[in-house]
Design a protein around this nucleic acid. Structure first.
Length: 564
RNA sequence: CGGGGUAUAGCGUAGCCCGGCUAGCGCGCCUGGUUUGGGACCAGGAGGUCGCAGGUUCGAAUCCUGCUACCCCGACCA
Protein backbone atom coordinates (compact mmCIF):
# COMPACT_ATOMS: atom_id res chain seq x y z
CA UNK A 1 0.00 0.00 0.00
CA UNK A 2 1.29 3.40 -0.94
CA UNK A 3 1.53 5.75 1.97
CA UNK A 4 1.15 8.79 -0.25
CA UNK A 5 -2.41 7.69 -0.98
CA UNK A 6 -3.25 6.25 2.43
CA UNK A 7 -5.09 7.74 5.32
CA UNK A 8 -2.64 7.35 8.18
CA UNK A 9 -2.96 10.51 10.26
CA UNK A 10 0.00 10.27 12.61
CA UNK A 11 0.38 12.67 15.49
CA UNK A 12 3.62 14.09 16.75
CA UNK A 13 2.25 15.09 20.10
CA UNK A 14 0.42 13.09 22.72
CA UNK A 15 -3.31 13.80 22.64
CA UNK A 16 -4.50 15.36 25.83
CA UNK A 17 -6.91 12.66 26.92
CA UNK A 18 -4.77 9.57 26.42
CA UNK A 19 -2.67 8.26 29.26
CA UNK A 20 -1.96 4.56 28.84
CA UNK A 21 0.73 3.67 26.27
CA UNK A 22 -1.47 1.58 24.00
CA UNK A 23 -4.06 4.33 23.79
CA UNK A 24 -1.46 7.01 23.12
CA UNK A 25 0.26 4.99 20.44
CA UNK A 26 -2.93 3.88 18.71
CA UNK A 27 -3.97 7.51 18.45
CA UNK A 28 -0.55 8.79 17.48
CA UNK A 29 -0.07 6.09 14.89
CA UNK A 30 -3.38 6.83 13.21
CA UNK A 31 -4.80 3.44 14.13
CA UNK A 32 -7.94 4.62 15.91
CA UNK A 33 -9.85 7.78 16.68
CA UNK A 34 -12.33 8.36 19.46
CA UNK A 35 -15.91 9.22 18.61
CA UNK A 36 -17.13 9.48 22.19
CA UNK A 37 -16.13 8.09 25.57
CA UNK A 38 -15.43 4.41 25.09
CA UNK A 39 -16.42 4.46 21.42
CA UNK A 40 -13.70 4.22 18.81
CA UNK A 41 -13.43 4.19 15.06
CA UNK A 42 -10.79 1.92 13.63
CA UNK A 43 -8.95 3.66 10.83
CA UNK A 44 -7.64 1.64 7.89
CA UNK A 45 -4.33 0.73 9.52
CA UNK A 46 -6.03 -0.19 12.79
CA UNK A 47 -8.66 -2.22 11.02
CA UNK A 48 -5.96 -4.27 9.32
CA UNK A 49 -4.73 -5.25 12.79
CA UNK A 50 -8.26 -6.12 13.84
CA UNK A 51 -8.61 -8.36 10.81
CA UNK A 52 -5.29 -10.06 11.52
CA UNK A 53 -6.30 -10.86 15.08
CA UNK A 54 -9.72 -12.07 13.95
CA UNK A 55 -8.11 -14.32 11.36
CA UNK A 56 -5.90 -15.99 13.97
CA UNK A 57 -8.94 -16.50 16.16
CA UNK A 58 -10.94 -17.94 13.24
CA UNK A 59 -8.24 -20.39 12.31
CA UNK A 60 -7.92 -21.73 15.83
CA UNK A 61 -11.66 -21.81 16.43
CA UNK A 62 -12.23 -23.63 13.17
CA UNK A 63 -9.47 -26.04 14.14
CA UNK A 64 -11.49 -27.21 17.14
CA UNK A 65 -14.63 -27.55 15.08
CA UNK A 66 -16.07 -24.12 15.67
CA UNK A 67 -18.63 -22.78 13.22
CA UNK A 68 -18.85 -19.07 12.70
CA UNK A 69 -22.19 -17.30 13.00
CA UNK A 70 -23.25 -13.77 12.47
CA UNK A 71 -25.81 -12.92 15.13
CA UNK A 72 -27.87 -9.76 15.55
CA UNK A 73 -26.75 -7.05 17.92
CA UNK A 74 -30.34 -5.86 18.13
CA UNK A 75 -32.31 -8.23 20.32
CA UNK A 76 -35.93 -8.32 21.47
CA UNK A 77 -35.92 -7.61 25.18
CA UNK A 78 -38.25 -10.48 25.96
CA UNK A 79 -35.58 -13.06 25.11
CA UNK A 80 -33.39 -11.55 27.80
CA UNK A 81 -36.32 -11.59 30.22
CA UNK A 82 -36.41 -15.37 29.96
CA UNK A 83 -33.17 -15.69 31.85
CA UNK A 84 -33.68 -12.72 34.15
CA UNK A 85 -30.68 -10.99 32.73
CA UNK A 86 -32.37 -7.73 31.86
CA UNK A 87 -32.42 -7.16 35.58
CA UNK A 88 -29.03 -8.76 36.14
CA UNK A 89 -27.36 -6.45 33.65
CA UNK A 90 -29.33 -3.46 34.86
CA UNK A 91 -27.95 -0.18 33.64
CA UNK A 92 -25.11 -1.93 31.82
CA UNK A 93 -27.51 -3.02 29.10
CA UNK A 94 -28.55 -0.52 26.45
CA UNK A 95 -32.28 -0.27 25.82
CA UNK A 96 -33.72 1.29 22.71
CA UNK A 97 -36.18 4.10 23.25
CA UNK A 98 -38.50 3.63 20.33
CA UNK A 99 -38.87 -0.15 20.30
CA UNK A 100 -38.64 -2.85 22.91
CA UNK A 101 -35.17 -3.94 21.87
CA UNK A 102 -31.87 -4.10 23.65
CA UNK A 103 -28.34 -3.97 22.29
CA UNK A 104 -26.70 -7.30 23.03
CA UNK A 105 -23.93 -7.16 25.64
CA UNK A 106 -23.18 -10.87 24.99
CA UNK A 107 -25.05 -13.67 23.24
CA UNK A 108 -25.86 -16.61 25.51
CA UNK A 109 -29.58 -16.00 25.13
CA UNK A 110 -29.46 -15.81 21.35
CA UNK A 111 -27.41 -18.96 21.05
CA UNK A 112 -29.75 -20.76 23.41
CA UNK A 113 -32.73 -19.42 21.45
CA UNK A 114 -31.42 -21.04 18.27
CA UNK A 115 -30.27 -24.17 20.03
CA UNK A 116 -33.67 -24.89 21.53
CA UNK A 117 -35.29 -24.77 18.10
CA UNK A 118 -32.95 -27.15 16.37
CA UNK A 119 -30.77 -29.10 18.76
CA UNK A 120 -33.28 -31.74 19.80
CA UNK A 121 -31.26 -34.92 20.05
CA UNK A 122 -28.06 -36.14 21.61
CA UNK A 123 -27.08 -36.91 18.02
CA UNK A 124 -26.98 -33.16 17.28
CA UNK A 125 -24.12 -32.58 19.67
CA UNK A 126 -21.43 -31.55 20.33
CA UNK A 127 -21.63 -28.17 18.65
CA UNK A 128 -19.32 -25.20 18.94
CA UNK A 129 -20.80 -21.96 17.68
CA UNK A 130 -18.91 -18.75 17.58
CA UNK A 131 -19.02 -15.23 16.27
CA UNK A 132 -16.80 -12.19 16.21
CA UNK A 133 -18.98 -9.23 16.74
CA UNK A 134 -19.58 -5.87 18.32
CA UNK A 135 -21.00 -5.96 21.83
CA UNK A 136 -22.60 -3.08 23.61
CA UNK A 137 -22.29 -2.34 27.29
CA UNK A 138 -23.14 0.89 28.98
CA UNK A 139 -19.98 0.90 31.06
CA UNK A 140 -20.21 3.30 33.96
CA UNK A 141 -16.70 4.38 33.31
CA UNK A 142 -15.00 3.60 30.02
CA UNK A 143 -11.25 3.93 30.30
CA UNK A 144 -7.79 3.26 28.96
CA UNK A 145 -8.71 3.77 25.33
CA UNK A 146 -9.89 0.66 23.67
CA UNK A 147 -9.34 -1.52 26.74
CA UNK A 148 -12.69 -0.76 28.31
CA UNK A 149 -15.19 0.61 25.85
CA UNK A 150 -18.94 0.92 25.59
CA UNK A 151 -18.81 -0.83 22.26
CA UNK A 152 -16.21 -3.47 21.58
CA UNK A 153 -15.40 -6.45 19.44
CA UNK A 154 -15.67 -9.80 21.07
CA UNK A 155 -15.16 -13.29 19.85
CA UNK A 156 -17.59 -15.38 21.78
CA UNK A 157 -18.17 -19.04 21.37
CA UNK A 158 -20.62 -21.41 22.93
CA UNK A 159 -20.38 -25.14 23.27
CA UNK A 160 -23.46 -27.36 23.31
CA UNK A 161 -22.98 -30.75 24.90
CA UNK A 162 -24.95 -33.63 26.30
CA UNK A 163 -23.36 -33.79 29.74
CA UNK A 164 -20.63 -32.53 32.05
CA UNK A 165 -18.07 -34.90 30.67
CA UNK A 166 -18.64 -33.74 27.12
CA UNK A 167 -18.59 -30.14 28.33
CA UNK A 168 -15.23 -30.75 29.94
CA UNK A 169 -13.92 -31.83 26.59
CA UNK A 170 -15.23 -28.71 24.83
CA UNK A 171 -13.80 -26.61 27.62
CA UNK A 172 -10.41 -28.23 27.29
CA UNK A 173 -10.43 -27.70 23.53
CA UNK A 174 -11.13 -24.03 24.05
CA UNK A 175 -8.44 -23.79 26.68
CA UNK A 176 -5.94 -25.19 24.18
CA UNK A 177 -7.22 -23.03 21.33
CA UNK A 178 -6.94 -19.91 23.47
CA UNK A 179 -3.38 -20.69 24.40
CA UNK A 180 -2.58 -21.08 20.71
CA UNK A 181 -4.35 -17.86 19.78
CA UNK A 182 -2.58 -15.72 22.35
CA UNK A 183 0.75 -17.38 21.66
CA UNK A 184 0.38 -16.77 17.93
CA UNK A 185 -0.51 -13.15 18.65
CA UNK A 186 2.83 -12.88 20.41
CA UNK A 187 1.43 -12.21 23.83
CA UNK A 188 3.10 -13.04 27.09
CA UNK A 189 0.03 -14.21 28.96
CA UNK A 190 -0.82 -16.35 31.94
CA UNK A 191 -3.91 -18.16 33.06
CA UNK A 192 -5.82 -17.52 36.25
CA UNK A 193 -8.19 -20.07 37.60
CA UNK A 194 -11.07 -17.89 38.76
CA UNK A 195 -14.18 -18.56 40.75
CA UNK A 196 -17.17 -18.93 38.49
CA UNK A 197 -18.69 -15.59 39.50
CA UNK A 198 -21.95 -14.16 38.34
CA UNK A 199 -22.01 -16.09 35.06
CA UNK A 200 -23.00 -19.17 36.99
CA UNK A 201 -21.60 -22.61 36.32
CA UNK A 202 -18.82 -24.61 37.76
CA UNK A 203 -15.45 -23.59 36.40
CA UNK A 204 -13.66 -20.83 34.60
CA UNK A 205 -10.27 -19.56 33.60
CA UNK A 206 -9.14 -16.07 32.76
CA UNK A 207 -6.39 -15.36 30.27
CA UNK A 208 -4.43 -12.37 31.49
CA UNK A 209 -1.63 -10.10 30.41
CA UNK A 210 0.44 -8.13 32.84
CA UNK A 211 -0.07 -4.41 32.41
CA UNK A 212 -0.14 -1.22 34.41
CA UNK A 213 -3.32 -0.42 32.53
CA UNK A 214 -4.95 -3.55 33.97
CA UNK A 215 -7.96 -3.57 36.21
CA UNK A 216 -7.38 -6.83 38.04
CA UNK A 217 -4.75 -7.43 40.67
CA UNK A 218 -3.20 -10.86 40.48
CA UNK A 219 -0.47 -12.88 42.12
CA UNK A 220 1.63 -14.80 39.64
CA UNK A 221 4.52 -17.23 39.94
CA UNK A 222 7.05 -17.25 37.11
CA UNK A 223 8.35 -20.54 38.38
CA UNK A 224 5.34 -22.83 38.16
CA UNK A 225 2.69 -20.68 36.53
CA UNK A 226 0.53 -20.36 39.62
CA UNK A 227 -1.73 -17.37 39.14
CA UNK A 228 -4.65 -16.17 41.17
CA UNK A 229 -6.70 -13.08 41.60
CA UNK A 230 -5.49 -11.23 44.67
CA UNK A 231 -8.97 -11.73 46.13
CA UNK A 232 -8.25 -15.42 46.51
CA UNK A 233 -4.47 -15.71 46.20
CA UNK A 234 -2.47 -17.38 48.98
CA UNK A 235 1.22 -17.56 49.75
CA UNK A 236 3.72 -19.38 51.89
CA UNK A 237 4.65 -17.19 54.81
CA UNK A 238 6.06 -17.94 58.23
CA UNK A 239 3.43 -18.01 60.95
CA UNK A 240 4.12 -15.81 63.92
CA UNK A 241 3.77 -18.80 66.23
CA UNK A 242 4.17 -18.92 70.02
CA UNK A 243 6.94 -18.05 72.40
CA UNK A 244 7.81 -20.54 75.16
CA UNK A 245 6.43 -18.54 78.05
CA UNK A 246 3.34 -16.42 78.02
CA UNK A 247 3.69 -13.19 79.88
CA UNK A 248 0.90 -11.71 81.93
CA UNK A 249 -1.35 -9.16 80.29
CA UNK A 250 -0.27 -5.62 81.09
CA UNK A 251 -1.44 -2.19 80.11
CA UNK A 252 0.93 0.37 78.62
CA UNK A 253 0.43 4.08 78.30
CA UNK A 254 1.03 4.91 74.62
CA UNK A 255 0.17 8.56 74.14
CA UNK A 256 -0.50 9.52 70.52
CA UNK A 257 0.47 6.11 69.22
CA UNK A 258 -1.98 5.22 66.46
CA UNK A 259 -0.38 3.11 63.77
CA UNK A 260 1.43 -0.18 63.95
CA UNK A 261 4.63 1.54 62.89
CA UNK A 262 4.31 4.07 65.68
CA UNK A 263 3.62 1.32 68.18
CA UNK A 264 6.67 -0.65 67.05
CA UNK A 265 8.86 2.43 67.29
CA UNK A 266 7.48 3.39 70.69
CA UNK A 267 7.97 -0.04 72.23
CA UNK A 268 11.00 -0.94 70.14
CA UNK A 269 9.35 -4.15 68.91
CA UNK A 270 8.87 -5.92 65.59
CA UNK A 271 5.53 -5.60 63.73
CA UNK A 272 5.12 -9.38 64.02
CA UNK A 273 4.73 -8.89 67.75
CA UNK A 274 1.63 -6.81 67.16
CA UNK A 275 -1.96 -7.61 66.29
CA UNK A 276 -3.72 -4.90 64.35
CA UNK A 277 -7.44 -4.60 65.02
CA UNK A 278 -10.01 -3.65 62.46
CA UNK A 279 -13.74 -3.52 63.08
CA UNK A 280 -16.16 -4.55 60.34
CA UNK A 281 -19.92 -4.61 60.35
CA UNK A 282 -21.45 -7.82 59.13
CA UNK A 283 -25.25 -8.05 59.07
CA UNK A 284 -25.48 -5.19 61.57
CA UNK A 285 -23.14 -6.92 64.01
CA UNK A 286 -19.60 -5.75 64.72
CA UNK A 287 -16.77 -8.19 64.12
CA UNK A 288 -13.22 -7.59 65.28
CA UNK A 289 -10.53 -8.62 62.83
CA UNK A 290 -6.96 -9.23 64.00
CA UNK A 291 -4.10 -9.05 61.54
CA UNK A 292 -0.39 -9.46 62.07
CA UNK A 293 1.36 -6.09 62.00
CA UNK A 294 0.57 -4.10 58.89
CA UNK A 295 -1.02 -6.98 56.96
CA UNK A 296 -4.02 -5.74 55.05
CA UNK A 297 -7.48 -7.19 55.50
CA UNK A 298 -8.68 -8.74 52.27
CA UNK A 299 -12.39 -7.97 52.28
CA UNK A 300 -13.25 -10.64 49.75
CA UNK A 301 -11.65 -13.28 51.92
CA UNK A 302 -13.35 -11.86 54.97
CA UNK A 303 -16.73 -11.99 53.32
CA UNK A 304 -16.11 -15.56 52.36
CA UNK A 305 -15.11 -16.44 55.92
CA UNK A 306 -18.22 -14.78 57.33
CA UNK A 307 -20.55 -15.86 54.57
CA UNK A 308 -22.02 -12.37 54.23
CA UNK A 309 -21.21 -8.89 53.03
CA UNK A 310 -19.11 -6.66 55.26
CA UNK A 311 -18.26 -3.02 55.51
CA UNK A 312 -15.69 -1.22 57.65
CA UNK A 313 -17.21 0.40 60.75
CA UNK A 314 -17.48 4.18 60.67
CA UNK A 315 -15.29 6.16 63.09
CA UNK A 316 -18.22 7.08 65.36
CA UNK A 317 -19.32 3.44 65.45
CA UNK A 318 -15.85 2.40 66.57
CA UNK A 319 -16.04 4.47 69.69
CA UNK A 320 -19.49 3.18 70.52
CA UNK A 321 -18.55 -0.46 69.92
CA UNK A 322 -15.11 -0.57 71.51
CA UNK A 323 -14.86 2.52 73.67
CA UNK A 324 -11.84 3.71 71.73
CA UNK A 325 -10.92 5.31 68.43
CA UNK A 326 -9.04 3.65 65.60
CA UNK A 327 -5.47 3.13 66.75
CA UNK A 328 -6.32 1.98 70.26
CA UNK A 329 -8.71 -0.88 69.55
CA UNK A 330 -7.91 -4.40 70.64
CA UNK A 331 -9.38 -7.84 71.30
CA UNK A 332 -9.07 -7.99 75.07
CA UNK A 333 -12.42 -7.12 76.54
CA UNK A 334 -14.13 -7.08 73.16
CA UNK A 335 -17.40 -8.91 73.58
CA UNK A 336 -18.35 -9.62 69.96
CA UNK A 337 -17.06 -12.03 67.41
CA UNK A 338 -13.28 -12.05 66.87
CA UNK A 339 -11.56 -13.49 63.81
CA UNK A 340 -7.80 -13.50 63.49
CA UNK A 341 -5.70 -14.13 60.42
CA UNK A 342 -4.07 -17.55 60.23
CA UNK A 343 -0.66 -15.93 60.40
CA UNK A 344 -1.16 -15.22 64.10
CA UNK A 345 -3.03 -18.40 64.92
CA UNK A 346 -2.68 -19.29 68.58
CA UNK A 347 0.09 -16.75 69.08
CA UNK A 348 1.07 -15.22 72.41
CA UNK A 349 2.89 -12.23 73.83
CA UNK A 350 1.32 -9.91 71.29
CA UNK A 351 0.64 -6.21 71.60
CA UNK A 352 -2.66 -4.68 70.61
CA UNK A 353 -4.97 -1.83 71.50
CA UNK A 354 -6.55 -1.59 74.94
CA UNK A 355 -9.95 -0.27 73.81
CA UNK A 356 -9.00 2.84 75.71
CA UNK A 357 -7.52 5.79 73.84
CA UNK A 358 -3.76 6.16 74.24
CA UNK A 359 -3.34 2.74 75.84
CA UNK A 360 -2.18 -0.60 74.48
CA UNK A 361 -2.01 -4.04 76.03
CA UNK A 362 0.98 -6.36 75.97
CA UNK A 363 1.30 -10.05 76.70
CA UNK A 364 -1.83 -11.11 74.89
CA UNK A 365 -2.12 -14.88 74.55
CA UNK A 366 -4.81 -15.86 72.06
CA UNK A 367 -5.22 -19.32 73.60
CA UNK A 368 -5.46 -18.04 77.15
CA UNK A 369 -7.13 -14.64 76.73
CA UNK A 370 -9.43 -15.01 73.74
CA UNK A 371 -11.35 -18.25 74.19
CA UNK A 372 -13.88 -17.55 71.43
CA UNK A 373 -11.46 -16.47 68.74
CA UNK A 374 -11.75 -17.94 65.25
CA UNK A 375 -9.12 -18.10 62.53
CA UNK A 376 -9.19 -17.69 58.77
CA UNK A 377 -7.01 -16.66 55.87
CA UNK A 378 -7.76 -12.97 55.75
CA UNK A 379 -4.65 -11.30 54.42
CA UNK A 380 -3.74 -10.09 50.94
CA UNK A 381 -0.68 -11.66 49.40
CA UNK A 382 2.23 -9.32 48.90
CA UNK A 383 4.89 -9.30 46.20
CA UNK A 384 7.90 -11.44 47.03
CA UNK A 385 6.09 -13.92 49.25
CA UNK A 386 6.45 -17.61 48.49
CA UNK A 387 4.31 -19.28 45.85
CA UNK A 388 1.89 -21.69 47.54
CA UNK A 389 2.81 -24.37 45.00
CA UNK A 390 6.55 -24.10 44.52
CA UNK A 391 7.77 -21.55 47.04
CA UNK A 392 9.39 -19.21 44.53
CA UNK A 393 8.67 -15.52 45.02
CA UNK A 394 5.29 -14.35 43.78
CA UNK A 395 4.78 -11.22 41.75
CA UNK A 396 1.73 -9.14 42.57
CA UNK A 397 0.69 -6.78 39.78
CA UNK A 398 -2.22 -5.54 37.73
CA UNK A 399 -3.32 -7.33 34.61
CA UNK A 400 -5.75 -7.07 31.75
CA UNK A 401 -8.26 -9.81 31.14
CA UNK A 402 -8.04 -10.89 27.50
CA UNK A 403 -10.26 -13.87 27.53
CA UNK A 404 -12.45 -15.87 29.82
CA UNK A 405 -13.73 -19.39 29.48
CA UNK A 406 -16.68 -20.68 31.50
CA UNK A 407 -18.47 -23.87 32.08
CA UNK A 408 -22.01 -22.58 32.08
CA UNK A 409 -23.75 -25.87 32.70
CA UNK A 410 -27.50 -25.68 32.25
CA UNK A 411 -28.13 -22.21 33.55
CA UNK A 412 -29.39 -20.85 30.22
CA UNK A 413 -30.69 -24.02 28.65
CA UNK A 414 -32.79 -24.81 31.70
CA UNK A 415 -34.30 -21.35 32.05
CA UNK A 416 -34.98 -21.08 28.32
CA UNK A 417 -36.11 -24.65 27.81
CA UNK A 418 -33.36 -25.76 25.46
CA UNK A 419 -33.74 -29.49 25.94
CA UNK A 420 -32.74 -32.55 23.97
CA UNK A 421 -33.58 -36.23 24.09
CA UNK A 422 -30.98 -38.67 25.34
CA UNK A 423 -30.36 -42.08 23.87
CA UNK A 424 -32.84 -43.38 26.43
CA UNK A 425 -35.47 -40.90 25.33
CA UNK A 426 -35.11 -38.79 28.43
CA UNK A 427 -35.46 -35.01 28.09
CA UNK A 428 -32.48 -33.05 29.44
CA UNK A 429 -31.20 -29.49 29.23
CA UNK A 430 -28.24 -28.88 26.94
CA UNK A 431 -24.97 -28.45 28.84
CA UNK A 432 -23.28 -25.28 27.73
CA UNK A 433 -19.98 -23.48 27.85
CA UNK A 434 -19.18 -19.88 27.02
CA UNK A 435 -15.84 -18.56 25.86
CA UNK A 436 -14.92 -14.95 25.14
CA UNK A 437 -11.98 -13.00 23.78
CA UNK A 438 -11.75 -9.22 23.69
CA UNK A 439 -10.36 -8.47 20.26
CA UNK A 440 -9.33 -4.88 20.94
CA UNK A 441 -7.75 -6.02 24.17
CA UNK A 442 -5.53 -8.43 22.29
CA UNK A 443 -4.35 -5.46 20.25
CA UNK A 444 -3.98 -3.09 23.19
CA UNK A 445 -2.18 -5.71 25.27
CA UNK A 446 0.19 -6.43 22.45
CA UNK A 447 1.11 -2.75 22.34
CA UNK A 448 1.29 -2.48 26.13
CA UNK A 449 3.77 -5.33 26.06
CA UNK A 450 5.69 -4.31 23.03
CA UNK A 451 6.51 -0.67 22.53
CA UNK A 452 9.34 1.76 23.22
CA UNK A 453 9.75 5.50 23.50
CA UNK A 454 9.44 5.85 19.71
CA UNK A 455 6.34 3.84 19.08
CA UNK A 456 4.74 0.47 18.60
CA UNK A 457 6.77 -2.69 18.03
CA UNK A 458 4.29 -5.03 16.39
CA UNK A 459 4.55 -8.74 16.62
CA UNK A 460 4.76 -9.98 13.02
CA UNK A 461 1.55 -11.97 13.25
CA UNK A 462 -0.69 -8.98 13.87
CA UNK A 463 1.28 -6.11 12.34
CA UNK A 464 -0.81 -4.28 9.75
CA UNK A 465 2.06 -4.78 7.33
CA UNK A 466 5.10 -6.99 7.61
CA UNK A 467 7.40 -4.53 5.90
CA UNK A 468 7.65 -0.77 5.87
CA UNK A 469 9.51 0.31 2.75
CA UNK A 470 10.96 3.80 2.97
CA UNK A 471 12.00 5.62 -0.16
CA UNK A 472 14.06 8.33 1.44
CA UNK A 473 14.10 11.07 -1.14
CA UNK A 474 11.32 10.56 -3.60
CA UNK A 475 12.30 13.62 -5.57
CA UNK A 476 15.37 11.81 -6.84
CA UNK A 477 14.68 9.70 -9.86
CA UNK A 478 17.17 6.96 -8.85
CA UNK A 479 15.47 6.49 -5.51
CA UNK A 480 12.02 6.41 -7.06
CA UNK A 481 13.10 3.88 -9.61
CA UNK A 482 14.89 1.63 -7.14
CA UNK A 483 12.22 1.75 -4.46
CA UNK A 484 9.45 1.08 -6.97
CA UNK A 485 11.38 -2.00 -8.07
CA UNK A 486 11.87 -3.13 -4.51
CA UNK A 487 8.19 -2.53 -3.79
CA UNK A 488 7.29 -4.77 -6.68
CA UNK A 489 9.82 -7.40 -5.68
CA UNK A 490 8.53 -7.55 -2.12
CA UNK A 491 4.83 -7.57 -2.96
CA UNK A 492 5.37 -10.12 -5.73
CA UNK A 493 6.99 -12.31 -3.13
CA UNK A 494 3.74 -12.19 -1.18
CA UNK A 495 4.91 -9.78 1.49
CA UNK A 496 2.60 -7.14 2.90
CA UNK A 497 4.32 -3.85 2.31
CA UNK A 498 3.55 -0.32 3.36
CA UNK A 499 5.51 1.83 0.92
CA UNK A 500 6.41 5.29 2.16
CA UNK A 501 6.55 6.92 -1.25
CA UNK A 502 5.69 10.38 -0.01
CA UNK A 503 7.46 13.05 -1.95
CA UNK A 504 7.10 15.81 0.59
CA UNK A 505 8.33 13.98 3.69
CA UNK A 506 11.95 14.20 4.67
CA UNK A 507 14.04 11.23 5.68
CA UNK A 508 13.89 11.97 9.39
CA UNK A 509 10.16 12.36 9.20
CA UNK A 510 9.81 8.96 7.55
CA UNK A 511 12.05 7.29 10.11
CA UNK A 512 10.02 8.69 12.97
CA UNK A 513 6.76 7.67 11.36
CA UNK A 514 8.06 4.19 10.67
CA UNK A 515 9.17 3.69 14.25
CA UNK A 516 5.84 5.01 15.49
CA UNK A 517 3.79 2.77 13.22
CA UNK A 518 5.90 -0.19 14.25
CA UNK A 519 6.13 -2.61 11.33
CA UNK A 520 8.56 -5.42 12.24
CA UNK A 521 10.90 -4.82 9.29
CA UNK A 522 11.89 -1.53 7.72
CA UNK A 523 13.50 -1.54 4.30
CA UNK A 524 15.25 1.73 3.63
CA UNK A 525 16.20 2.91 0.16
CA UNK A 526 18.69 5.76 0.35
CA UNK A 527 21.17 7.25 -2.06
CA UNK A 528 24.35 6.12 -0.34
CA UNK A 529 23.55 2.44 -0.08
CA UNK A 530 21.89 2.48 -3.46
CA UNK A 531 25.22 3.41 -5.04
CA UNK A 532 26.43 -0.01 -3.91
CA UNK A 533 23.20 -1.60 -5.10
CA UNK A 534 22.15 -2.17 -1.54
CA UNK A 535 19.26 -1.36 0.73
CA UNK A 536 19.30 -1.02 4.46
CA UNK A 537 17.11 -3.17 6.65
CA UNK A 538 16.20 -2.17 10.16
CA UNK A 539 14.65 -4.61 12.55
CA UNK A 540 12.21 -2.58 14.59
CA UNK A 541 12.40 -4.70 17.69
CA UNK A 542 16.16 -4.84 18.15
CA UNK A 543 17.10 -1.72 16.24
CA UNK A 544 19.60 -3.86 14.38
CA UNK A 545 20.57 -2.57 10.91
CA UNK A 546 21.73 -4.66 7.98
CA UNK A 547 23.00 -3.78 4.55
CA UNK A 548 21.49 -6.08 2.00
CA UNK A 549 21.96 -6.40 -1.78
CA UNK A 550 18.87 -5.46 -3.76
CA UNK A 551 18.83 -8.82 -5.52
CA UNK A 552 16.75 -11.23 -3.53
CA UNK A 553 15.90 -8.62 -0.95
CA UNK A 554 12.54 -10.37 -0.58
CA UNK A 555 14.25 -13.60 0.36
CA UNK A 556 16.33 -11.87 2.99
CA UNK A 557 13.28 -10.13 4.42
CA UNK A 558 11.43 -13.42 4.64
CA UNK A 559 14.31 -15.05 6.46
CA UNK A 560 14.41 -12.19 8.92
CA UNK A 561 10.66 -12.38 9.45
CA UNK A 562 10.96 -16.07 10.23
CA UNK A 563 13.56 -15.35 12.85
CA UNK A 564 11.75 -12.59 14.74
C1' C B 1 -22.84 6.86 41.05
C1' G B 2 -19.03 9.52 44.72
C1' G B 3 -14.28 12.41 44.56
C1' G B 4 -10.73 15.28 41.57
C1' G B 5 -9.28 17.69 37.02
C1' U B 6 -9.83 19.76 32.18
C1' A B 7 -12.45 22.34 28.02
C1' U B 8 -9.01 28.44 23.92
C1' A B 9 -7.77 26.71 15.42
C1' G B 10 -6.73 19.74 13.24
C1' C B 11 -2.98 18.59 17.62
C1' G B 12 -0.20 20.54 21.88
C1' U B 13 -0.68 24.96 24.66
C1' A B 14 -0.22 30.65 26.84
C1' G B 15 -3.58 34.13 28.73
C1' C B 16 -7.91 33.21 33.60
C1' C B 17 -6.10 34.57 40.42
C1' C B 18 -5.70 40.58 39.46
C1' G B 19 -11.84 41.94 33.60
C1' G B 20 -9.40 46.38 28.99
C1' C B 21 -8.12 40.99 23.68
C1' U B 22 -7.96 43.46 17.79
C1' A B 23 -6.91 36.18 21.90
C1' G B 24 -0.61 34.83 21.62
C1' C B 25 2.88 30.65 20.61
C1' G B 26 4.76 25.68 18.62
C1' C B 27 3.33 21.73 15.38
C1' G B 28 0.24 20.74 11.29
C1' C B 29 -2.30 23.07 6.77
C1' C B 30 -1.99 26.41 1.90
C1' U B 31 1.52 29.28 -1.80
C1' G B 32 6.58 30.12 -3.55
C1' G B 33 11.68 29.07 -3.00
C1' U B 34 15.85 26.45 -0.77
C1' U B 35 16.87 21.69 1.47
C1' U B 36 16.92 16.01 1.67
C1' G B 37 19.75 9.69 6.40
C1' G B 38 16.42 10.75 12.42
C1' G B 39 9.99 14.90 12.98
C1' A B 40 14.37 20.91 7.87
C1' C B 41 14.86 26.41 6.54
C1' C B 42 13.20 31.27 4.54
C1' A B 43 9.15 34.38 2.90
C1' G B 44 4.00 34.97 2.49
C1' G B 45 -1.00 33.10 3.89
C1' A B 46 -5.63 30.63 5.66
C1' G B 47 -7.85 28.90 9.96
C1' G B 48 -11.12 30.69 16.54
C1' U B 49 -19.33 30.99 18.27
C1' C B 50 -12.29 30.99 23.84
C1' G B 51 -17.46 23.78 25.44
C1' C B 52 -23.00 25.51 25.82
C1' A B 53 -26.77 28.75 28.17
C1' G B 54 -27.82 32.56 31.34
C1' G B 55 -26.09 36.54 34.64
C1' U B 56 -22.78 40.73 36.62
C1' U B 57 -20.30 44.91 34.08
C1' C B 58 -19.36 50.67 30.08
C1' G B 59 -16.55 46.22 28.76
C1' A B 60 -16.03 38.93 29.98
C1' A B 61 -11.59 33.72 27.46
C1' U B 62 -11.00 36.06 32.40
C1' C B 63 -15.98 37.08 37.66
C1' C B 64 -20.96 34.39 39.17
C1' U B 65 -24.90 30.45 38.25
C1' G B 66 -26.60 26.25 35.66
C1' C B 67 -25.61 22.57 32.06
C1' U B 68 -22.69 19.43 28.76
C1' A B 69 -18.43 16.76 27.18
C1' C B 70 -13.82 14.44 28.12
C1' C B 71 -9.84 12.49 31.41
C1' C B 72 -8.12 10.46 36.20
C1' C B 73 -9.10 7.90 41.19
C1' G B 74 -12.84 4.99 43.52
C1' A B 75 -17.48 2.05 43.34
C1' C B 76 -19.21 -1.41 39.60
C1' C B 77 -17.70 -5.09 35.98
C1' A B 78 -21.15 -11.26 31.75
Amino acid sequence: MRQSKSFIPTLKEVPNDAVVPSHILMLRGGYVRALAAGIYSFLPLGYRVVKKVCEIIREEMDAIGGQEFHLPALNPREIWEETGRVQAFGDTMYHLKNRDYVLAPTHEEIITFHARKVVKSYKDMPQTWYQIQTKFRNEARPRSGVIRGRQFLMKDSYSLDVDEEALNKSYRLHDEAYRKIFTRAGLNFFVVGASSGAMGGSGSEEFMVRSDAGEDVVAHCEGCGYAANLEVATSKIDPVGREKDSREIYEISTPNVKSIDELCAFLNINERQTAKSRVYICENTPVLILMSGNDEVNETKLQKALGADVRPAHPDELKEITGADAGSIGPVGFTGKIIADNRIKESNNLFSGANKNDFHIGGIDFLRDLPNIQYADLRSVESGEGCPNCGKPLGVFTAIELGHIFKLGTKYSASMGANYLTEEGEEKPIVMGSYGIGVERVIACSIEQSHDEYGIVWHKSIAPFQVHLLGLNMKKEVIVEASEKVYKQLTDAGLEVLFDDREDAQAGFKFKDADLLGMPIQVIIGEKKLAENKAEIKIRKSGERLEVPLENLAGTVKELLDKI
